[in-house]
Design a protein around this nucleic acid. Structure first.
Length: 357
DNA sequence: GTTCCACCACGTCAGAACTC
DNA sequence: GAGTTCTGACGTGGTGGAAC
C-alpha cells in the first residue's frame, strides 16, 4: 500500500467510524453512535440535561404521535406536569428493528439479573453482527416521516438485472468501449448503449440500424440518440466489423439525413487492425465448445458481474451519503429540541422556585 | 510553477446479508 | 443452500487550496 493510500485510508476510516452504527465493533455498549444515542433517548423518554442534574425528567407514556406530557421533578420536590415543546416526536433516523432491539438490550443491561444479561449479550452480539442496510433504514424512516423521500426499489435489481440494461433485449453480444460504455447488440439488429457513468436509465440508449436498401460498401449508418458525445469511439461488433463513432464531417452526404442535429453517427466497418486498447471482447452466449469459448464466456460473466458491482457500489455510496445527510439533519433537529427543552425547564424553574426577592 | 495536503469519486474485492 | 445484492475495505486518480 502506498503512503498516500494509507493516509487516505486512515482518514476514511476515521470518517466512517464516526457514523458507524452497528457494523463491526465488538463492544457496542460503549461506542454508540450519535444517532443511536439520540434514538435511545427518544425511545425511553429520557432527556440528558447536564446543566440541570438535579431536575429529573420522566416520560409518561409518550408514545409516538401522542402528546408529550412530561413529569418534571423540581429540586424543591415538586412534580410538575409539562406539555413538551415537541408535539410530534420525530423518530430516530435509525429505526431499523435491529437497532431498536439493541436499545432494549442496552437498557436491560441496567438490570441486576446476570442471566438476562448473558441472554441479552448473546442476542446483542447476534444482532450486531448484522450490518444495516441504508436503503432499509431510510425506507423505514421515510415510512414514519412523510417528509423524507423514499429510496425507490429498483425493479431491475429485484429481477437481478443491472439498472442500465434492464430493458435490453436479449443481446447477442455485449461490448465495452474504452470509455466504459457498454454496447449490446440484439438479434434484431438493435444496438443499445449503456453508459455506466450516467445515472439510472439515462445511460441506456437505443440504436437503430438503418442498413436497409443499398448501403454503401463497408458502411452501415446507425442512428444514435445520445445526449452528449465527445471524441471518437471505436468498438467491435460480430462478423469482424468495427463500429466507429464518426466525426461530424466524416459522413457521406447520403447518410447525413440519418444523423441530424447533434446526434453522433456510428458506422460499422471492416476492422483495420487488431482490437484497440480498452475494448473488451465478449463471446456470444450461444453454444460453447472449445476451452477458448468457455474462457470467453467466463470473461463475459466476469465483466457483467463487475459492471453490476460497479453500479451497486455507486448506488450504495449514494445511499450512504443520503443516510449521512439524514443523520446530520436529525442531529440538528435534536439539538434544537434539546435547546428548547432546556429553555423550557429553565422557565419552569423560574416559575416554580420560591422568589428570593 | 511545484509540492503537499485534504477531500472526493470511483473500481474492485471479499464477505456479510438477503432472496428464492 | 445457491445465487444475488449490499457494503466495508482498499487502492487509485483527479481537483482545489495553501504554502513555498
Amino acid at each position: 500500500m502506498s503512503k498516500c493510500g494509507r493516509k487516505k485510508y486512515m482518514r476514511t476510516n476515521v470518517r466512517q467510524m464516526t457514523m458507524e452504527t452497528v457494523e463491526s465493533q465488538q463492544d457496542r455498549s460503549v461506542t454508540h453512535s450519535v444517532a443511536e444515542r439520540s434514538s435511545a433517548h427518544m425511545q425511553t423518554g429520557q432527556i440528558s440535561v447536564p446543566t440541570l442534574a438535579q431536575v429529573s425528567v420522566a416520560g409518561s407514556g409518550t408514545g409516538r404521535g401522542s402528546p408529550a406530557v412530561t413529569l418534571v421533578q423540581l429540586p424543591s420536590g415538586q412534580t410538575v406536569q409539562v406539555q413538551g415543546v415537541i408535539q410530534t416526536p420525530h423518530p430516530s433516523v435509525i429505526q431499523s428493528p435491529q437497532i431498536q432491539t439493541v436499545q432494549v438490550a442496552t437498557i436491560a443491561e441496567t438490570d441486576d439479573s446476570a442471566e438476562s444479561e448473558v441472554i441479552d449479550s448473546h442476542k446483542r452480539r447476534e444482532i450486531l453482527s448484522r450490518r444495516p442496510s441504508y436503503r432499509k433504514i431510510l425506507n423505514e424512516l421515510s415510512s414514519d416521516v412523510p417528509g423524507i423521500p423514499k429510496i425507490e426499489e429498483e425493479k431491475s435489481e429485484e429481477e437481478g438485472t443491472p439498472p442500465n440494461i434492464a430493458t435490453m433485449a436479449v443481446p447477442t453480444s455485449i461490448y465495452q468501449t474504452s470509455t466504459g460504455q457498454y454496447i449490446a447488440i440484439a438479434q434484431g439488429g438493435t444496438i443499445q448503449i449503456s453508459n455506466p457513468g450516467s445515472d439510472g436509465v439515462q445511460g441506456l440508449q437505443a440504436l437503430t440500424m438503418t442498413n436497409s436498401g443499398a448501403p454503401p460498401p463497408g458502411a452501415t449508418i446507425v442512428q444514435y440518440a445520445a445526449q452528449s458525445a465527445d471524441g471518437t469511439q471505436q468498438f467491435f461488433v460480430p462478423g469482424s466489423q468495427v463500429v466507429v463513432q464518426d466525426e461530424e464531417t466524416d459522413l457521406a452526404p447520403s447518410h447525413m439525413a440519418a444523423a441530424t442535429g447533434d446526434m453522433p453517427t456510428y458506422q460499422i466497418r471492416a476492422p483495420t487492425t487488431a482490437l484497440p486498447q480498452g475494448v473488451v471482447m465478449a463471446a456470444s452466449p450461444g453454444s460453447l465448445h472449445s476451452p477458448q469459448q468457455l474462457a470467453e464466456e467466463a470473461t463475459r460473466k466476469r465483466e457483467l458481474r463487475l459492471m453490476k458491482n460497479r453500479e451497486a457500489a455507486k448506488e450504495c455510496r449514494r445511499r450512504k451519503k443520503e443516510y449521512v445527510k439524514c443523520l446530520e439533519s436529525r442531529v440538528a433537529v435534536l439539538e434544537v429540541q434539546n435547546k428548547k427543552l432546556i429553555e423550557e425547564l429553565e422557565t419552569l424553574k423560574d416559575i416554580c422556585s420560591p422568589k428570593t426577592d
